[in-house]
Structure formats: structure tokens, C-alpha cells
Nucleic acid binder design. Sequence first.
DNA 1: AACCAGGTCTCGA
DNA 2: TCGAGACCTGGT
Length: 267
Amino acid sequence: MRLGPIDLDRTLGCGQVFRWRKEGNVWKGILNGKELQLRQKRGSVVAEGGTDDEALERYFRSDDDLDRIRAEISRDERIASMVANAPGLRLIRQDPWECAASYVLATNANIPRIQKMIENVCRTFGDPLPGGGFAFPRPDQISGGNEAAKACGLGFRCDRFVEFARLVDRGEIGLETLRKADYEECVRELRSCPGIGDKVADCVAVFSLDHLDAFPVDVRIKKAMEEMYGVCGTYRSVNRFGREYFGRYAGYAQEYIYYSFQRIKRV
DNA sequence: AACCAGGTCTCGA
DNA sequence: TCGAGACCTGGT
């Protein structure tokens, strides 16, 4: 199995996925409904658990030529230094449904709270797993659970979350088919779903549907883009600049910027 | 104790 | 198409 180059701490801890936890030097998570433990082994990863190598390679996008991508998005010294300072940071290929549902919950909340909401949802609706964890629930497990969802602390996201699950359950949106669509069509379709606007659509596109040219703009990226390039304004204007400036791997650029700004305190 | 968080929705101009 | 407000809740 070839998973390198990869840095587990950066890749799993940068905020693109919400369910992985680090205990000691072991990352614990769930992949394809199976509990899994990952350890950093130099530039690569050692896995324990019932998941096949093929699934791991797919999940960690081992088909991406990271060196090439890092070189290609290093359009100026500023982004180049961010790339240089975060070796092994990779995008992850998430499950589209889990990704979309998670980011519907991620609106206007901080990461610790997002993680809590998602765990509540998994405990409430998901299948219990042998190791004591819970799988991320399928749409049909959520679609009838309005009352149960209200006990998950989702706030105003609750109705959107359940409505979105129903939409997917009824087959009115085919997430997987959007993988083959172009970026514009992909985000247009996603945006027609309850709880999914510009930002979430871009996240789902880049984190789960292989649209690496998507460029999600959240408040942190918005600040970063203004500081780095003097770009501000509407979502569409910042998004368009990022896509044009960084090109086909704009999504990777976005993640390196997001990661680089995570610990910076504004003075 | 305020302020803010990987935004979306609605409405009016 | 754009800007302004409202919006649950809990971290920091």
C-alpha cells in the first residue's frame, strides 16, 4: 500500500473531516462503516482494522500527485511558504452523503461544536459498531426522525438536516452522479438542496466529488484572501478569484491557506 | 460577559 | 444580483 506522502495530523486535523480523534499517537475513526486506527509511520501510514488498502488509498486520494499539486498551486511566495510549511497535507475523498450532511450541520458553528452535533446524530440514528462507536447514519435512518433530531442540539440546522436527508432518501438528488458533472452543474444541483448554499456546495464538491477546482470561502478564507491578495466582496467574487488564480487544484490551495491561518490570532 | 463560529434563508432594492 | 438581518447554541 502506498499512502504517502501524508501527514496524518495535518490531514485529519485540519477541519475537512469531523469524526477522527487522536488518542495518544493513534488516530481513531470510521471508514466505510468500519472502525479503524491509523498511526503515522514516517511519511506513510500504518492501519489497524478491517478496512482494505484499496479503500484507504481511495480515501486519502493517493491518486493525487501531491508534489505536483503543491508545485502547481505555489503561484507566489506567500502561498508557496504555506505549502512548504505544511508537508503531507492532503485532501480527503469523503463519502458524498456524509460530507454533505456534515457540512449542512457545520453552518455558522465552530469545529468543536460541529463535532459534537455530528456525534449526537450518529449516536441517535447510526448503527452501533463492535468497538463501541456508531456509523454515520444513512438518509433513511434520519428521514423519519424529526423528534429525535431535535434532541441532538442542532439548533436552526435541525429542519434543514432532516429535510436534506429526506430529499436524498427519496432519490431526488443523486449525489454520486455529480462526480461526473462539471463544477458549475455540480454546485448548482447541490445548492438546490435545503441547507446547502455556496459554501457548503463548494465543500461537498471538493471534499467528496473530486471537483478539485472548487474553492470554498468561509470566514477564515475570506480574511486570508483579503490579507494576502486584497480580494474582498461577495462570495462569488472571492470564489472566482481563487478558482482563476490557483487553477485546477484551487481546492488544495484553499486547504493550505485554511490550515495556515488556523492558529493565527489577529492583533 | 460578550463575541464569534468552515452560512443559509428571506426579503427588499 | 447584491446587502442586511435573523437565526440556535456553545466555545473561547
